Simulated scan of single mutants.
Amino acid sequence: MAALCAIGLMSGTSMDGIDIAFVRTDGENRIVAGPSMFVPYDAAFRRRIEAALETAKAIVRREDRPGDLAELETEISLRHARAVEAFLKSEEGHWGRPDVIGFHGQTVLHRPATGVTVQLGDGALLARETGIPVVYDMRANDMAHGGQGAPLVPAYHAALARSLPKPFAGKFPVVFINIGGISNVTYVPAQGAPVAFDTGPGNTLIDQWVSREGGVPFDAGGAIASEGGVVSDVVGRYLENPFFEKSGPKSLDRNDFTLDLARGLELSDGARTLAAVSAEAILKSAEHVPEKPKLWIVCGGGRKNPHIVGDLRSGAERVGAQVIVAEDAGLDGDATEAEAWAYLAVRSLKGLPLTFPTTTGCREPVSGGVLAEPQKS
């Protein structure tokens, strides 16, 4: 199959909006990343999604939609359709009409222990609304084959790692860090399959903390944390969680870590301490990879928190490793996950593996995704 033009759509655990990105790729080693856009959710809609996380706890089967989840799924799908339309009409949309859309949807429940993962998103509705084929529901087949259903981005990270520019080319092992609501890492060796797993809370605890204690949705630029200090015993108690002792593959739900251990902290101390938790959890992941990483590349919204990145750099330097942000390597750290979903959509069309035993714990490399074709008039 020749290279296809794909759009990736990602709405992550931060629940702040929709990332859109163009990629031209053959689903293997040919990757040309194109323009991207972010379409934010309004505060009221974000609160609806937050409420849905509670409603979703009642889900037993993947197809269950208790309460208003069915209505919310339709609304999410329509918002994604409008976002695609706006993107294609914008200057960023000059690449032309895509061959396929990779649609993540909004995760409201992820329980790998019981084989249930739910991403709200109606791929057939999105295909009808946009007139473009849509690949969606990319986690389910992995779980059906014994996998955790996450993370899915490693296939894309591995391809990026092998095309890094100088002076970073060849600095294996490379570890890509994605810091969204939950952080995950992809370890890419010089030879062989990537190793990947969730590392712990990324931005989610910080966001919850400043929302609850300060009435703001997130700590922009780490400004709140800059007024505080790290409370080391709180960091230590978070890191005592048995999750950190497990080797990968492993994955987390947004609700697996709470603010209970931060109770009683002052606003800025809490924000700074939780940033340290995020960084230390990532650094701790080096205990579960085959070789000591030489290069860490930070992607996702968390790379904009100078405290997380600063703590990562300090920790990595102590063991002779280097930490850079995506832009240092010519990548777009905001668009990486959306780009990955475009890349995965093309891999799905070709029947190529999306996940591997070393990334999700599936029994064998497996493809995935459901293709929804637009209805012809």
Rank of each mutant, 00 (worst) to 15 (best):
L354M: 06
V298N: 00
A321L: 15
E337K: 05
P306Q: 13
W341V: 00
A329G: 01
G310M: 10
A335N: 05
R313M: 10
I297K: 08
K304S: 15
L295E: 00
V298C: 07
E291A: 04
L352C: 02
A345Q: 11
A335W: 10
R347D: 01
G310R: 10
K304Q: 09
A335P: 04
S314P: 02
L283S: 02
P353I: 08
P353K: 10
S278Y: 11
G315D: 11
V319R: 12
R313F: 08
N305M: 05
E327I: 15
I308W: 03
A326S: 07
G320D: 08
G302V: 05
A340T: 06
I282F: 14
K350D: 13
K292R: 12
A342N: 02
A338V: 02
G301E: 13
I324W: 06
A342M: 02
G315E: 03
L283Y: 02
L352K: 00
A279N: 04
I324S: 11
K350E: 12
G351Y: 06
G320M: 15
R318G: 07
D328Q: 10
V289D: 03
E287L: 06
V319H: 08
E287K: 14
E339T: 14
V309S: 01
A329T: 07
V325I: 13
H288K: 13
A329E: 02
I297D: 01
V298Q: 09
I297A: 09
L344M: 01
A326E: 05
K294D: 02
A279S: 12
S348G: 00
